[in-house]
């Protein structure tokens, strides 16, 4: 049981990170139906910027909390600038181009950002400085670290704040209006370009926070770290219902759990030695090793894609989504 609880904790932490990144995808997609492929790279740039600041200040006598805050405060504006730049330079000129054009551009930007980051921060895996002691608590036999608790709590707070922005402020109303129908929104006096730019900026700010989370959780940063993370977060957004903020959170947590439990249990579930009837070949291997696993944790990266494909095929609007699928 403690193992199961531990896997839940693992999954929730991972899911919290996916959720925050997924918010960036879902907001942009909700408004202009664009898969911002380069969003994962923004997360990476956030992690790298924070790492540079934190490593620079570490050991300077400044209190650790201040250092981390400085890291976040540096990463957020940098990422916001990158997000805004992306929108201005790459996406806005294509606002009325065929649908595939901005997607191809997004892939291109993703490659460009990765390699620019590589030139800035080198090819090496960079160690994220550990300036805080990371206390480990044991709950029912399962370990949870201070960083994990921070990540989960912070992500919930951020989601709450974002929901408040979208549903309680004028900006949020404008965002929803633009998402609903940009033409009409414009007629109502909403500056759609500004709203879209702001959406990118908010998403990028969240990406920066996610970058710091990922970096400090795993203690490592690399210029390629954003791509797969972005893909998985996108899967999470689709799972929850793309365009839907609560959906992104739900999708993120669910995907995190699926990955953790999948990696943890798929091996046991596909262990051919549990079969009631075994062919000789299998029986011989089982007798020798005690296990003959058909699919092990080596397939853990497949789960996100399977979830994505399954959702898109059977429930394209996602778990909490409205039917936006047919539009455009």
């Amino acid at each position: 049981m403690d193992i199961f609880l531990q896997q839940i904790i693992n999954g929730l932490t991972l899911g919290a990170v996916y959720a925050i990144v997924a918010l960036g995808y879902t907001m942009v997609y909700g408004i202009i139906q664009l898969i911002n492929f380069a969003h994962g790279e923004v997360v990476m740039i956030g992690a790298m910027t924070a790492l540079t600041v934190i490593a620079g200040l570490a050991g300077s006598g400044v209190p650790p909390l201040v250092i981390v805050l400085a890291g976040v405060l540096a990463a957020v504006p940098v990422c916001m600038a990158v997000g805004y730049g992306l929108e201005r330079v790459a996406y806005r000129p294509l606002r009325h181009a065929p649908r595939l054009s901005p997607l191809i551009t997004a892939i291109g930007m993703s490659i460009v950002l990765q390699h620019v980051a590589m030139m800035v921060w080198s090819r090496n895996f960079l160690a994220f400085p550990q300036i805080f002691p990371n206390p480990v608590f044991f709950v029912g036999g399962a370990a949870i670290t201070g960083v994990q608790i921070t990540i989960i709590v912070l992500s919930l707070l951020i989601m709450g704040a974002l929901t408040a922005v979208v549903f309680r402020t004028r900006l949020g109303t404008a965002m929803r209006a633009t998402a609903e129908n940009p033409e009409v929104a414009r007629l109502m006096g909403i500056d759609c370009d500004r709203v879209i730019a702001l959406t990118f900026i908010i998403g990028a700010g969240l990406a920066a926070v996610a970058g710091v989370m990922v970096g400090s959780y795993y203690g490592i940063a690399h210029y390629t770290m954003g791509f797969v993370l972005g893909l998985k977060a996108f899967s999470a957004a689709v799972l929850g219902g793309i365009g839907n903020i609560a959906g992104a959170m739900l999708g993120g947590f669910l995907l995190g759990l699926v990955e953790a439990l999948g990696a943890g249990y798929i091996g046991d579930l596909t262990n051919l030695c549990h079969l009631p009837w075994q062919p000789d070949l299998v029986a011989a291997r089982c007798a020798a090793d005690g296990h003959l696993v058909l699919f092990g944790s080596n397939y853990q990266d497949v789960f996100a894609f399977l979830v994505l494909i399954g959702v898109l095929m059977f429930r394209p609007e996602g778990l909490l989504g409205e039917r936006v699928g047919q539009r455009a």
Binding site: Q7, N10, G11, L14, Y218, I220, D289, V293, S297, Q300
Partner: peptide, 17 residues
């Protein structure tokens, strides 16, 4: 039974658990 990640895996928690 063999557990695996990839050459970019940074999250080993599920496997290690």
């Amino acid at each position: 039974a063999r557990e695996k990640g990839t050459d970019k895996t940074t999250d080993w928690k599920a496997v290690l658990t």
